[in-house]
Nucleic acid binder design. Structure first.
Length: 862
RNA sequence: GCCCCAGUGGUGGAAUUGGUAGACGCGGUAGACUCAAAAUCUACUAUCGGCAACGAUGUGGGGGUUCAAGUCCCUCCUGGGGCACCA
């Protein structure tokens, strides 16, 4: 035996190759028009300070793609950056008296070191950090360009306001109607905020989904629902004052103009201007509106809450019949942000309206007749009817199908000048104002005489001041003694700087483009570089960003195209959304969560606390989270087994789009497999022919081994292309098992083993790059595995010449037979019928029918 | 409430998309090596019956389509995700 090292030492090997790749700048990307490009990126992390298992999974998946595509000859761009603005830094500042910048940059440093230990094939020279002026100054330029293009505006909008902390809260920061930090009862307030006009691209964003054929169906569907296109009508109902029609009106939006003759009320949002006007003279209504404002703003909260209304006493005249008057309610389920903030209610054909009508004793008049119902007797009693049918009791609409009736009703409304047919989107404009310090300053100055004036491009960046304090509630930029006081860029009179900063989703909406020319100081994006690299060929990240981040980035791409920065509409041609990493969580007898490393599992499935031996309750496996302490620290795993083990485990077992249950035993199994590969090479490398030796005569074993080699190359390649990484790992394990049986004493087998080992190391390279690079060197190769080409399967060897065919009788498996590939159907039938077991199952009957699926199955119907 | 996804051995999961269910791994059992242990290697491991050959059952429940269903259709149950300021 020619053994050198009995055991594989990942610590030594991994840092060795990381240094080699780094020294040679192996992963540095440069535009090269002569080669096909491949841009792969993962969602960049928020620099919390620690890399968690979700990151390890995310970046392993992306790295496999990057390394695989590199080997396939693509000019690969695989960058990394930091989503570095955001609330946690400000919270840390308040809690620990650390400056957000210090906290953030320290975290970035720590996380970069941890990521680099993973051996990712990243071009670190293109690293972007969103909180750095070298990034956000370009973002401010984009904001100015978008303003110029008419994509930015200011309007009053409703927010959750914490009256103690003087801050705006996210919905999730409102717990039971109270602020999560202060515990104060949250108010709804109107604030003047900046908006980006994403709605002007609503139709295009919807249509674009159709071109994203390498996106998960699920994500496209979620975006489609989010944009929420619906056809309907805006209809004006004139106010009727004591029976007299006035010139004032209430405009409602409806998708069911066909049911207008079934109307029994009109309802306004509590935030509707008319509601506010009425509340001035009606204390009860004011109280009702205040009550509604305490409710959450989310759709889920609105729809599950009890439907409540307040009868204003106002009446409106029906559009089609001036003598028919409907009551006007203020209702808690009507959204100001959607449509016109007002609806008409048709209780007979809408769930919500039905519930409302029942509660307030409003008429329920059926106007849609279900196909099987009788027009004389049909009525809506127990539940509304929302299905198709013919219109009834509706004058000129009678007898029309629902869809025709909609068109006819809209035509009538338009003819009467009472409204028009419209396409309505659920999508709302994007409010980007945040009353926070740690974000990109919005480059605007407010002047009493000139209004909101953009900061001239030459004055960018608008830098965040360093000297801020967090001891007072509210926005530190607002509290700062001097920062906001500037002169107006237009008239030079004293003016006030905008103190709102950007939503952090803005930062992450264009970083994909910044990667193309990350070090260009003069402009957000170098157009030549962007035209070469964009769009991103493969984006990898969590499905939790399926809607907002991805939609905002798609909007930004369009807006950046409109302002000349890039040339594509769709930023991400391919998207892969990975599942979460989960783990069981544990509670001790006191009901406190405890860490997995403090838990000992017993043979009977129970668990006890390490040390005390006290019993522990095991709960189901769920997403790793600090609060439940069900976390496994990647650093610990990498210290024990190395990065390759962590990477291999992330790819084994679970398909990447599904949740992955972390198991120490599974990680141990991945580690054992690496040791096995090491020994396989280590124990045979001295007896292998060199790679250029001619092919000797092969015995059956060697021939079979070569077939396995080429079949495995073909299978693994196909699996990688389809993101079936777990399948690829399984094939590679089988492959290694097969190679272990070869005998190097035979020249043919030794040759097959050499070919097999070279291939094995190459195809596992993207998954466990350090070990593979080491084995590649030990196999005698002088160039880096990282620079070597992906192996090609010999198609003559990748298919078996003999196939095993299942023989069924009446659909039940009775035998398997071996036949030459592509044997004649008649030969297959004969062979099948010759089998003893098959004969017994037929029991002497004459087959009625024989179905032969070539190379797969024969079914005999007896 | 609305929209979407998933359910397969003791366990994570596989099944080239209608064609041999359980690949590969984890765990388990038995054995080899060892003074012993660790590590490693070999064999077996869906369930029930049988010494075996083999047979029956089996992909959350029920029904259907088909020569053939984990896969397609209907229906029910259970679990999970999303629903505009966490990132």
């Amino acid at each position: 035996m020619n053994t050198t090292n009995a055991r594989y030492n990942p610590q030594v090997t991994e840092s060795k190759w990381q240094a080699v790749w780094s020294d040679r700048e192996s992963f540095k990307a440069a535009e090269d028009a002569t080669r096909p490009k491949y841009f792969v990126m993962e969602m960049f992390p928020y620099p919390s300070g620690r890399v968690h298992m979700g990151h390890v999974r995310n970046y392993t998946l992306g790295d496999v793609v990057a390394r695989y595509k590199r080997a396939c000859g693509f000019n690969v761009l695989h960058p990394m950056g930091w989503d570095a603005f955001g609330l946690p830094a400000e919270n840390a500042a308040r809690d620990n008296n650390t400056h957000p910048a210090t906290w953030t940059y320290d975290n970035i440093k720590a996380m970069r070191t941890e990521l680099q230990r993973m051996g990712l094939s990243i071009d670190w020279s293109r690293e972007v950090t969103t909180c750095h002026p070298s990034y956000y100054k370009h973002q401010q330029k984009l904001f100015l360009d978008f303003m110029q293009a008419g994509l930015v505006y200011r309007k009053e909008s409703w927010v959750n306001w914490d009256p103690v902390d003087h801050t705006v809260l996210a919905n999730e920061q409102v717990v039971d109607g109270r602020g999560w930090r202060s515990g104060a009862v949250v108010e709804k307030r109107q604030l003047s905020q900046w908006f980006l006009k994403i709605t002007s691209y609503a139709e295009d964003l919807l249509k674009g989904l159709g071109t994203l054929d390498r996106w998960p169906e699920k994500v496209r569907l979620m975006q489609e629902n989010w944009i929420g296109c619906s056809q309907g009508a805006r209809v004006r109902f004139k106010l009727a004052d004591g029976g007299k029609i006035t010139n004032e009106d209430v405009e409602v939006f409806t998708t069911r103009p066909d049911t207008l003759f079934g109307a029994s009320f009109v309802a306004l949002s509590p935030q509707h201007p008319l509601a506010a006007k009425l509340a001035e003279t009606d204390a009860n209504l004011a109280a009702f509106i205040a009550d509604c404002n305490r409710m959450g703003t989310s759709e889920a909260a609105l729809e599950t809450a009890e439907k409540k209304g307040y009868d204003t006493g106002l009446k409106v005249a029906h559009v089609f019949d001036a003598n028919w008057h409907l009551p006007v309610y203020i209702a808690n389920f009507v959204l100001m942000e959607y449509g016109t903030g007002a609806i008409f209610g048709c209780p007979a054909h809408d769930e919500r309206d039905f519930e409302f009508a029942r509660k307030y004793n409003l008429p329920i008049k059926a106007v849609v007749l279900p196909p099987d119902a009788d027009v004389a007797s049909f009525a809506v009693n127990a539940e509304p009817y929302t299905g198709p049918g013919k219109i009834m009791a509706s004058q000129f609409l009678d007898g029309l199908e629902v869809d025709e009736a909609k068109k006819r009703a809209i035509a009538e409304i338009e003819a009467r000048g009472a409204g028009q047919g419209v396409t309505q989107y659920r999508l709302r404009d994007w409010g980007v104002s945040r009353q926070r310090y740690w974000g990109c300053p919005i480059p605007v100055v407010h002047c009493e005489s000139c209004g909101a004036v953009p900061v001239p491009a030459k004055d960018l960046p608008v830098l965040l001041p360093d000297d801020v304090t967090f001891d007072k509630p509210g926005n530190p930029l607002e509290q700062h003694p001097t920062w906001k006081h500037v002169n107006c860029p237009t008239c030079n009179k004293p003016a006030r700087r905008e103190t709102d900063t950007c939503d952090t989703f803005v930062d992450s909406s264009w970083y994909f483009a910044r990667y193309c020319s990350a070090t260009d100081d003069t402009q957000p994006v170098n157009r030549l570089a962007a035209d070469y690299w964009l769009p991103v060929d493969q984006y990898v990240g969590g499905v939790e960003h399926a809607i907002l981040h991805l939609l905002y980035a798609r909007f930004f791409a369009r807006a950046m195209k409109a302002t000349g920065h890039i040339g594509v509409n769709e930023p991400f041609a391919g998207l892969f959304t990975q599942g979460m990493v989960t783990h069981e969580s544990y509670k001790n007898a006191k009901g406190e969560w405890i860490y997995p490393e403090d838990v000992a599992k017993n043979a009977d499935g129970t668990a006890t606390e390490v040390g005390s031996g006290a019993p522990v309750t095991i709960t189901r496996s769920e997403k790793m989270s600090k609060s439940k302490k069900n976390v496994v620290d990647p650093g610990r795993i990498m210290n024990t087994y190395g990065a390759d083990t962590a990477r291999l485990f992330m790819l084994s077992d679970s398909p990447p789009e599904r949740d992955l249950e972390w198991s120490d035993a599974g990680a141990e199994g991945a580690w054992r497999f690496l040791g096995r590969l090491w020994r396989l090479v280590d124990s045979t490398v001295g007896q292998l022919p060199t790679a250029d030796m001619p092919l000797p005569t092969l015995n059956a074993t060697a021939d079979k081994a070569r077939r396995i080699t080429h079949k495995t190359i073909a299978d693994v390649t196909a699996s990688l292309e389809r993101f079936h990484f777990n399948g690829a790992v399984a094939r590679i394990r089988e492959f290694a098992n097969a190679l272990e049986t070869l005998n190097t004493g035979d020249a043919g087998e030794a040759w097959a083993l050499r070919e097999g080992l070279d291939s094995l190391v190459q195809i596992i390279g993207p998954m466990v790059p350090h070990l593979a690079e080491e084995l590649w060197q030990r196999l005698g190769h002088k160039t880096l595995l990282t620079d070597s080409a992906w192996p090609k399967a010999d198609s003559a060897l990748a298919v078996d010449n003999q196939v095993t065919i299942a023989v069924q009788v009446n659909g039940k498996l009775r035998a398997t037979i071996t036949l030459p590939r592509d044997a004649q159907a008649t030969d297959a039938e004969t062979a099948a019928l010759a089998d003893d077991n098959v004969q017994r199952a037929i029991a002497g009957q004459k087959p009625k029918k024989i179905i032969v699926v070539p190379n797969k199955i024969i079914n005999i119907v007896a």
